[in-house]
Design a binder for these strands. Structure first.
Lengths: 206, 206
DNA sequence: CTTTTTCCTGCCCAAAAGTACAATGTAATC
DNA sequence: GATTACATTGTACTTTTGGGCAGGAAAAAG
């Protein structure tokens, strides 16, 4: 698979040339009209303006090209965005030649290159998602302690509804809403509707 | 790098043998005491009981071995858990030989194998995280519209504090807290402290 | 068929929350 | 020095909230 290095600096990245010295460099944007297939593009992000870099990347991905984004300051969050739009690899501008070769091989084999740091952060994100799901379970537990009508009232409060609004949507008197709320406060051991709304949304109280 | 296939079925996975026919198979658990380094273990998850599989995996990872988990029904969520504990690859039991070879190569090169499906799901999770972060950003934007003292008051409310409590923690009169709150309600276009607490915690109102 | 739970509502009251109008002081900006 | 933004507090008022006491009705459980 051919390699193509996209940068605005002519003297950039010796390690890249060490890895793929025989490959071509595109230092003049915009890209040529016709993109050849089976080429792995390496985009030297910070050598370009953000607008240039973004439009170039969009063009490449629109052409179903394989792209590795190289940046001076790899940022896991940014990296994840890149992967989500189809970028195959995200690595440091100054990665050593041997590592660049490995990245290329992995991608040629149909894989995706994740640096160890990116992978770690990705995992942290995943774990955060899992934790969020777990906490959602906590809210279910809370709601399970309530009677059906109490649950309805609680859910309304959890979205910021006032007693009057709840009484309208549930077609009961405001006094009834208050009665349900008092029961809810007791059962869930909270002081007022604010705390109720927060715990139902898995937010810790102070 | 040597391959080692861990399964309880003797006749399992012809494609695996096609890919790594010369490699060894462990069909009798538990694992031998001494784990040789530089071996890539392929764990045939569903051929074992969950307990067996889990303890075997834990043993391998404790020995800092490289492990690929193979399963009949790849599940992105489960896969993420595997990666988070150090598994290098997660793929389908019936993947074709050529793909298995690719997985092996990627891992040998220090990468991690993510199937396309797993990658997609991972991205969805990431996007959810990103969305959460963005929303957190929204909260930051909201807070940015406030003066320093208003911010303090708002944050207290966001954790369920009452006016009296806030007046104590901030060492101001209750009247001042109310004044700040009125200003906050105006600026952030909410009706009362409940809605304020919710939007500051990135929860949609009804 | 009782008993219990849940649900509904009224009147009243107290506390909390929220608002209007007014005033003072301080710091920064112009 | 004047203006502006911010912070502070007061009095007084209205609204909302939370709850005590009391009384029903309906449904589920025993």
């Amino acid at each position: 698979m051919q390699k193509c290095f996209i940068t605005s600096q002519t003297d950039a990245l010796p390690s890249w040339y060490e890895a793929f010295g025989d490959a071509l460099t595109l230092s003049c944007l915009p890209l040529p009209e016709t993109l050849s297939a089976n080429v792995l593009y390496w985009l030297d992000w910070h050598s370009l303006s953000d607008e240039q870099a973004e439009s170039t990347l969009a063009l490449l991905l629109a052409g179903a090209q394989k792209v590795v984004v190289m940046t001076s300051h790899p940022d896991a969050q940014r990296g994840m965005q890149f992967f989500s739009i189809g970028v195959r690899g995200y690595c440091h501008r100054f990665a050593v030649a041997s590592q660049l070769c490995e990245v290329a091989k992995v991608i040629e084999l149909g894989g995706v290159w994740l640096g160890s740091e990116a992978m770690q952060r990705l995992m942290q994100g995943t774990l955060r998602v899992a934790a969020a799901v777990d906490k959602k379970g906590d809210a279910e537990v809370l709601l399970a302690q309530l009677t059906p009508k109490e649950r309805l009232v609680a859910l309304e409060v959890a979205h910021g509804a006032s007693n009057r609004e709840i009484s309208v949507t549930l077609s009961v008197s405001e006094r009834t809403v208050k009665a349900h709320l008092s029961a809810i406060f007791d059962k869930l051991a909270v002081r007022d509707r604010v705390q109720l709304a927060l715990i139902l949304n898995n937010i810790d109280l102070r």
